[in-house]
């Protein structure tokens, strides 16, 4: 794996390898404490981030590496009009691995064409968020001990949420997974993504959440992506389309897990946090182990 831009480029075995390595690292982090000693990671965030940036930083620091970068493009030369390509060429000279988040789709491919060190996408516009999908499947694997034969409900903004395509691509690599895609009609999964998973992953599209959730192993909830909406009024109309609260989850099995890539706004009520199904904070924590595994595989 030279660069990590899309989950589409990973094989089932490569995904399983990352998941199993993340598990190994979590169980024995001290064994990896010096794995990145003497290495530098460039963290280039052209778009705001909390979890992705901090968990990559935590992951690299936990392996003894050092970090440079920026989290506000206004403080970088991109503000002066520097291209992505030039910024990446420069960062390649200054570091051993680059993590980049950018608000433009296609930015990952552009960057990967000039990066002379491994490049990891931390999210590219609405296109994909591959490392989120890897920590998501790590979370699922920890819970169920498998990544096949799962029934997953995805709920919310499936059109603009970049974690959705990456997670669907990851689930499509494993056998007998079924996904149910619940969103307002305006926020359905893009056709290009459905055509990518067609024949590889069984899916159904709907608007109304079923009254009975007992067949689900995972309920994956997403935020309506305000910053990507072309129209503020439409956002206001749709932002509370789904609110997952304890009464919605009444029929869910106790071993079902509720996931969310965070940040959460109103789509999961605070009182769900105390339910046995809530797994989103654990999921965020798993991001550190998953990203340590990704960096370990790509940098060494």
């Amino acid at each position: 794996m030279d660069h990590l831009i899309s989950i589409k480029h990973l094989s089932k075995d490569e995904i399983l390898d990352i998941v199993q390595l993340a598990d190994k690292i979590e169980k024995n982090p001290s064994e990896y404490a010096d794995a990145m000693k003497g290495k530098i990671m460039a963290n280039l965030f052209f778009e705001p981030s909390t979890r992705t940036r901090l968990s990559f930083e935590s992951a690299f620091l936990r392996m003894g590496g050092q970090i440079l970068g920026f989290s506000d493009p206004a403080a970088s030369s991109s503000k002066k009009g520097e291209s992505i390509s030039d910024t990446i060429r420069m960062a390649s000279a200054y570091s051993d691995v680059i993590v980049m988040r950018h608000f433009l789709e296609g930015s990952g491919v552009v960057a990967s064409k000039v990066a002379s060190v491994p490049l990891i996408s931390g999210g590219t516009g609405i296109q994909e968020h591959p490392t989120q999908a890897l920590l998501d499947v790590f979370t699922i694997w920890k819970e169920f001990g498998r990544l096949d034969n799962l029934t997953v409900g995805l709920v919310g903004d499936l059109r603009y949420g970049r974690t959705i395509p990456s997670l669907l691509y990851a689930l499509s690599k494993f056998e007998n997974n079924r996904v149910f895609l619940y969103s307002p009609n305006q926020l359905r999964v893009r056709m290009s993504i459905l055509s990518d998973i067609d024949g590889k992953l069984s899916y159904e599209v709907g608007e109304k959440l079923p009254d009975d959730l007992k067949e689900f192993d995972v309920l994956y909830v997403t935020r309506v992506q305000k910053e990507r909406f072309p129209d503020e009024q439409m956002y206001e109309r749709l932002k509370d389309f789904y609110v997952i609260n304890p009464s919605v989850l009444e029929t869910a099995r106790e071993d079902m897990i509720v996931m969310h890539p965070l940040p959460r706004i109103t789509e999961i009520s605070y009182d769900v946090d105390e339910l046995p199904q809530a797994r989103y904070f654990q999921q965020a924590k798993n991001g550190v182990w998953a990203r340590m595994a990704i960096l370990y595989r790509m940098v060494r």
């Binding site: 009009g81 291209s83 992505i84 950018h102 789709e105 296609g106 296109q127 055509s195």
Partner: peptide
């Protein structure tokens, strides 16, 4: 990103010919 000042040539895969559908290799 190809619509911004980047030193790349836009390229597309033709996914179906009838009807004609193309897909950007970048985004």
């Amino acid at each position: 990103a190809t619509n911004f000042r980047e030193p790349v040539v836009p390229s597309f895969q033709i996914t179906t010919k009838k009807p004609l559908l193309l897909r950007c290799n970048f985004c």
